[in-house]
Design a protein around this nucleic acid. Structure first.
Lengths: 160, 160
DNA sequence: TTGACTACCTAAATTATTTAGGCTACTTTT
DNA sequence: AAAAGTAGCCTAAATAATTTAGGTAGTCAA
């Protein structure tokens, strides 16, 4: 079995997690490879699906999206789950939708402009088929918010 | 007051949220502008801080990070908050750390390789100064997970 | 109306990326 | 064990992307 990551791949992935528009010559210098070699490695990491894509990260404060909140939702009747998930996917203010263990059947992370828009989102959700209960926690401040994966911990994928 | 976004800016931002490595000529075609004009707009959006940065998004499943969970933490004594936040920031498996309203004082989103590493992270957290109680919810499946901002809703920033 | 400013354009210069071709070290097949 | 194939690297050339330079038109204020 080939397809294992070496230190160079890890360095490339970590650099791209930080700077998704990094140029190949910058990375080449960082990892002591030629530019075409870096290109080839990046292409493979993309083709293997290890890199899902690249995204610009916008500053939500500057866009006046001031409320971040988490909402536990109790959806009764698993026949309503599909509908719930579809509705949640269509709401732009809902960033995440998970099915979870413990209290509530679903869990949402939402971002709205203000308490008013939060309130109206919440009442929209409460009107969805099967939704019997919600519990919200508003975010006062955030100290860390990332999606970076500590690649070097993926021991199964790492060579030698 | 200038500094307002027009439709072109919105289209550029939305495209970059989807494809963070999009090339300027592709965008130029999309918005019917010349390449240098697109470059100039992108530079301004970056300089204004509306675009915080660009990130490669890695596929956590392919890296065998199989557990996603949310943890409410009760930290007693606000003199312990600072320490808590610092410790949380240093843990690579902790993706998010928020201070929240409602039950618990802090809220974490974590991603670990398996239940074993989750358990050990949890007991590490429980040993931090002031942590008196935790409650965890494991994610069974995720239907949506994004950070995209619906730029067109930022009415304060939009021209005409 | 002039001057300053903004946002755009084209064309040229520069830089980045890909392609082509070849080398070496392994691994697999015969 | 030798031959053939493969993976990964390199340099140099070709191509493509980006920036720079210089200019035009429109807007607003003095």
């Amino acid at each position: 079995m080939s397809h294992l990551l070496d230190e160079t791949d890890i360095a490339i992935l970590n650099h791209l997690q930080e700077n998704g528009r990094a140029q190949r010559n910058t990375i080449a210098e960082l990892v002591n490879l030629s530019v075409p070699s870096v290109s080839e490695r990046m292409k493979k990491l993309e083709e293997r699906g290890l890199i899902e894509g690249y995204k610009a990260i916008l500053n939500s404060k500057k866009f006046h999206f001031d409320i971040t909140a988490f909402i536990f939702v109790q959806v009764d009747g698993s026949e309503n789950y599909q509908n719930f998930v579809e509705k949640a996917s269509a709401e732009e203010e809902i960033l995440e939708c998970h099915s979870i263990t413990g209290d509530g059947s679903h869990f949402l992370k939402v971002r709205t402009k203000n308490t008013g828009s939060f309130e109206s989102l919440l009442s929209r959700i409460q009107a969805w088929e099967g939704v019997s209960k919600t519990r919200s926690n508003l975010v006062l401040s955030s100290f860390k918010e990332t999606r970076a994966i500590p690649v070097e911990h993926a021991t199964e994928l790492i060579k030698s």
